[in-house]
Structure formats: C-alpha cells, structure tokens
C-alpha cells in the first residue's frame, strides 16, 4: 500500500472529531426520544415509548406531519418541473445568457434565507398569500429549484448530445426527443434533485416562521414553538421522524445513483 496515502495521527484525530461533531447531535436525539421523563433528557431508569405514543395520537403533531408532507410534495413537484426544464433549456441553448441564468438559479441558496424571508414576507402581504398553502408551496418550490438545476445540469453534462441529434435525425420531434431520449437518460439526476428539493422543504424552518401564522404549522415550525414554550420530549420524536424520512429519501437517492452507474 502507498504510505503517502495514509493519514498521520493529527489528521486522523481531526477527521474523526469532525465526523463525530456532525453525527452526535443526530444520534443523541434517538435516546432522548426514548426517555422515561416528562422533559427533554436522556432516559433515567428505563426506555419508554410513551412519547412516540403521544406523537402518533396527538392531533397537532399528526396534522403538522401531514402539512409538512403535502407542502414538501407539492413544492418538490414545482421545483422539479421548473428546474428540469430550465436546466434542459440552458443546456440546449448554451449561450453566455444561459450561463447567467444558471447562476441566477442558484441565488436562493446563496442569499441568506432570512433576507429572502423578509422580502417574501413583504410581497406576500401585498399578494395576500401569508399563511396559505399556495404561499408556502411557492416559496419552498422556488427555493428548491437550485438543487434540481444543479443535479440535472450534472446529469446533462454526461448526456451525449449526439443522442439528441440522432433522435432528431430519425424524425423525432422536440417533444418526442425529450420524452423518449433525454428524460430517461437524465432521470437519476432528476430523482436526486427531487429528493434534495423534498428534504429542503421538509426541514425548512426560517421562511415558514415568517410567512405562516395560525393556519400552517409544519413540523419544523411546531418544533420551534415547542422549544420556546415547553421542553416536551415529543419534539425529539418529531425530530426522529424527520431524520428518518430524510434518511429514507437519501437511501432512495443512493439506490438511484447505483442504478445509473450499473
């Protein structure tokens, strides 16, 4: 084995500490969710599922889960359809202008969410979209576009443009070429983008605080309120539910990528 590729002790310690720092907050939430106490803490005497029972019987938490799910799904559809078409359009035209468009599409992840939230808040007041599903789905959908543009652009970079020429040369219209040749080839990229867009909406906590008030309580917002008001361990359960959903999504992504490389 190549000795130069082996890490020294300092690098090893550093790498493992960073890894632990990333993982510990996630892992600590699972024992807390199993606590036998009535406040946020590690289990004292025994493991208990009482807070899971509380979560899955609480109308408030269940409706929050449902709201988060609906918003995440709808905004994913919005982000995927617009983001994919934008990426394909930029790829096909491929001029200086489309390069600028592609950079502009990344703005939602460059601009701090709080700045973005303030702007949207002012606009939504005027458009009467505050505290509505439409309002939240629009915001989450638009801020999810960068993830789709990035993954689809990457997928298109590996797409052989001659396949498109071949399809057109054989008489396929633009629509047929898109449906039968381009989309099937870049589907793994679209799926990845969809998963990231979903997770983005699923755990988005800043924008929702600004544009929702009474009607909409997504899971992150419910947790935020819970932390401010009381230290109910059900929040840990909610966190676990969120993490599990995200992990499940990432597993799907991994599977899709593996399928692509087959």
């Amino acid at each position: 084995m190549d000795r130069s590729a082996q890490a020294g002790p300092v690098a090893n310690v550093l790498a493992w500490s960073v890894l632990l720092f990333l993982l510990l907050p996630i892992t600590v939430i699972f024992p807390i969710s199993l606590t036998d106490q009535r406040f946020l803490s590690l289990p004292y005497e025994a493991l208990s599922l009482q807070h899971y029972v509380a979560f899955f019987t609480s109308e408030r938490w269940l409706s929050s889960t449902w709201q988060s799910l609906v918003i995440a799904l709808a905004s994913t559809i919005l982000a995927v359809s617009t983001g994919t078409l934008c990426a394909i359009g930029c790829w096909k035209l491929s001029t200086r202008a489309t390069e600028i468009v592609r950079v502009l599409m990344l703005l939602p992840i460059i601009v701090p969410s709080i700045v973005y939230a303030l702007g949207i808040y002012r606009l939504w007041i005027r458009l009467d979209l505050l505290d509505t599903y439409t309002g939240v789905i629009l915001v989450h959908g638009v801020t999810g576009i960068p993830y789709v543009v990035i993954t689809v652009t990457t997928a298109l970079a590996n797409f052989d443009p001659r396949l498109e020429q071949a399809a057109r040369g054989m008489g396929a219209s633009l629509r047929q070429t898109l449906a039968w040749v381009i989309l099937p080839r870049i589907m793994p990229g679209i799926v990845s983008g969809a998963i990231f867009a979903f997770i983005h909406s699923w755990d988005e906590a800043v924008l929702i605080l600004f544009i929702a008030s009474r009607a909409l309580f997504t899971l992150p917002r419910r947790m935020w309120d819970g932390i401010n008001e009381n230290l109910d361990p059900v929040m840990a359960v909610a966190a676990c539910v969120m993490i599990l959903a995200s992990v499940l999504m990432l597993a799907v992504d991994l599977w899709a990528r593996r399928k692509r490389s087959e």
Partner: peptide, 12 residues
C-alpha cells in the same frame, strides 16, 4: 433534420 427523412450513422 426531423423533416428530411435521412438515415444517419453517427461517429460513435
């Protein structure tokens, strides 16, 4: 191209 009805074999 799609209206010309030409067969084409591409490089690669």
């Amino acid at each position: 191209p799609e209206k010309r009805n030409f067969g084409m074999v591409f490089q690669g």
